[in-house]
Design a protein around this nucleic acid. Structure first.
Lengths: 140, 140
DNA sequence: AGCAAACTGGATAAAAATATCTTATTATCC
DNA sequence: GGATAATAAGATATTTTTATCCAGTTTGCT
């Protein structure tokens, strides 16, 4: 339902949210979240361009949340790497459906709306808070 | 959110549901629903194997709903071609999460559950009824 | 019987998503 | 300033999804 890429992005963000004070390197994040390192680099780029994280090069550098975990929603993360494809116009390009979607696509889009709402109302800190002491992604 | 394949399957099923009394050929369905003919054939095979439609070969043959439109849900159609990947075990394969998903994956799965419920509670006849006279997919 | 319509199944091709690798650029520390 | 750690970016490879094509089989019709 969401892409592998979005799953990776969420893992990385949750991890960063757990220790937001110091930068974490691509390598660290990859190891903990078990995401292929080379690919994670791309995902982190996307998140960076979307303004959700900041990066610092050089020794001691890495990635850090760009704003507090309370202010970052699951929705923002997913949107940054692999947006939810809301249905705004008829996929069959029927003229008759330009104004109003047919019941089929209307109902599909309603389902996506549910997901979107769910994602919008969940912040990274919600997730961390729920985890308690263990940490969300087992840090071995 | 759902695959192209699932979208095609739904279009085909809605079309069949609109005229359930006579068989419709792959070619007919493809033209109306604007699905590539060769690919539609595969999709129809899947739907047939799932028991949602029946097929008849030879002249005058084609595909027909296997049961009344009132008894076929969107969920069944999607499941037949491209199941919703509910999260039942930790995607990171962490031992600590075998019993209980971490909050991240728990919340993702909750969203899928919403979608699943929405799909389960919608039948093909619901969709057709909502369309009124026009027909769901413009029959040109 | 013979022909044409229609599904069936397998092989193949094209496109998109996912993943890897390599080279550059930037920053820090000594 | 040089060595090293780290991101940035582009090229390439692999896998999955989507799509096409073709030969085979069944069915109905005359």
């Amino acid at each position: 339902m969401i892409s592998q890429t979005a799953e990776y992005a969420l893992r990385a963000m949750v991890y960063l949210a757990q220790e937001p004070d110091r930068p974490h390197t691509n390598q660290q994040i990859a190891r903990i979240t078990r995401v292929p390192m080379g690919y994670l680099a791309k995902v982190l780029q996307s998140l960076s361009k979307a303004g959700l994280i900041t990066s610092r090069r050089g020794l001691g550098g890495g990635f850090t949340l760009a704003k507090p975990a309370e202010e970052i929603t699951v929705y923002e993360v997913v949107q940054a790497v692999d947006p939810i494809p809301r249905i705004t116009s008829c996929p069959l390009k029927l003229k008759a459906h330009r104004e109003k979607l047919c019941p089929l696509h209307q109902r599909l889009d309603n389902a996506w709306e549910l997901v979107e709402q769910s994602f919008r109302s969940t912040t990274l800190s919600d997730i961390i808070a729920e985890a308690g002491e263990d940490g969300v992604l087992c840090e071995e």
